[in-house]
Design a protein around this nucleic acid. Structure first.
Lengths: 219, 219
DNA sequence: ATAAGTCTGTTGAAATTTCAACAAACGGAG
DNA sequence: CTCCGTTTGTTGAAATTTCAACAGACTTAT
């Protein structure tokens, strides 16, 4: 168990909890470690989700199959990252996709109820963990809301401008860098890459923005 | 205070908490009641959000101004509904939009920290409230994820089919009703209403779905 | 039953996006 | 410095969406 402490220490779920207290914590929430071989299902589609997962080693991927039968990877979680937390907290009756081990992996599974309901001992660290979990989910929520605001716009220009405006506000400056290359930005905005490039050029020619590579300035 | 108990009783944040215990609860979390006149800001853009809001009477609306200067209402909250909970839990430093009273309203504001951190008395109801809050935010999260999955598709057909497939799975049946009229569905999917109608007809002609008004069946 | 209003499906034209292909710019590696 | 692989910008054609307008179906109030 001890050999995983360095990884768990970096897991945001345990933010603000000292290493020395981690051991007590883990007893308190009864985390169990499971091993999965490459391709094996960590959580199967259709199950009722009870556990929050933490990747200790390896990686898991969340996969979805669309109505054409195309399977695509929605996200992956690497060591120290948590997954399935929203489904566990929402007490999802049927997981709408499959979570599998991308490679041979060790996963810690924690019963969500043990996290949310403070133990009888009511340890102070438990409270920290609840706070962390709430913050994680709420932050994702805000990010998803922003993305929805962007993608609900109808044109590439509107999507891009909405994104740039949100980013400028976040950076508290008209001039900022973005952490995406063109293709990734296009995927995020839900538009075609070449169309996005064209739109950036157009906005630049119209004197609405300045841009060079992934650095932008709103005028 | 007592006159608001009926409203609070229906607030999902207090699910599973008996009326008799509600009063203790409210002391424990120190909910304060504020009154706002029509149009007055309940939470101003740019502030650091600390409180979760509950509408006791009237209604609040969450408004956003886009880069053209058009102001639009993102959502409204009516009596018994909560708002700003994600921003409070995520400890948002700058609220990205304004929350105003749509009409003369009474609002209960609760310091989020008081909710998340169980009180020294560690009352059992507090634990219920944390559980409820977590479930609310996690559920929204899942819904937003689904919406993102839908709107990230490029064509009206793909968006519609993804939505129908998710709904069918949720209803555990190929045949189901949807809670939207055409315009609302179009807004939700992020597409043009007339184009959506046309696409539904096309799918029907191709024998992929049956549909009558807001009832659908996947074939 | 009528009338007014709303919702839905249809259509064609205009606008926009996607797609494919290519060239220019860029960034290492040798 | 040159070569090679990758990223980005550009372009024109094809596909799709949006827009506006209208007609028919349906609802509700009187």
């Amino acid at each position: 168990m001890k050999k995983y402490f360095d990884i768990l220490k970096n897991c945001i779920l345990f933010d603000g909890i000292e290493r020395d207290n981690l051991e007590n914590m883990l007893g308190c929430i009864n985390g169990r470690i499971e091993e999965y071989s490459k391709g094996e299902a960590v959580m199967q589609e259709g199950i009722a989700v009870k556990d929050i997962g933490i990747v200790l080693s390896g990686a898991v991927q969340i996969e979805r199959t669309d109505y054409y039968g195309n399977r695509s990877i929605i996200t992956t979680a690497e060591p120290g990252e948590i997954f399935a937390e929203s489904f566990a907290c929402a007490e999802t009756k049927e997981l709408p996709f499959c979570i599998t081990a991308a490679v041979k992996s060790e996963i810690m599974l924690i019963d969500c109820k043990r996290v949310i309901h403070t133990c009888s001992r009511s340890c102070e660290f438990h409270s920290s963990m609840i706070y962390n979990l709430m913050k994680i989910i709420a932050t994702k929520n805000i990010l998803l809301n922003q993305r929805t605001e962007i993608t609900s716009k109808r044109t590439t220009r509107d999507k891009l401008m909405t994104y740039l405006l949100i980013t400028a506000k976040k950076n508290d400056s008209d001039s900022f860098s973005i952490p995406y290359d063109r293709q990734t930005l296009a995927d995020f905005l839900g538009v075609d890459r070449s169309g996005l490039s064209a739109e950036i050029s157009k906005l630049r020619n119209e004197g609405i923005i300045e841009s060079r590579k992934n650095r932008f300035r709103l005028l």
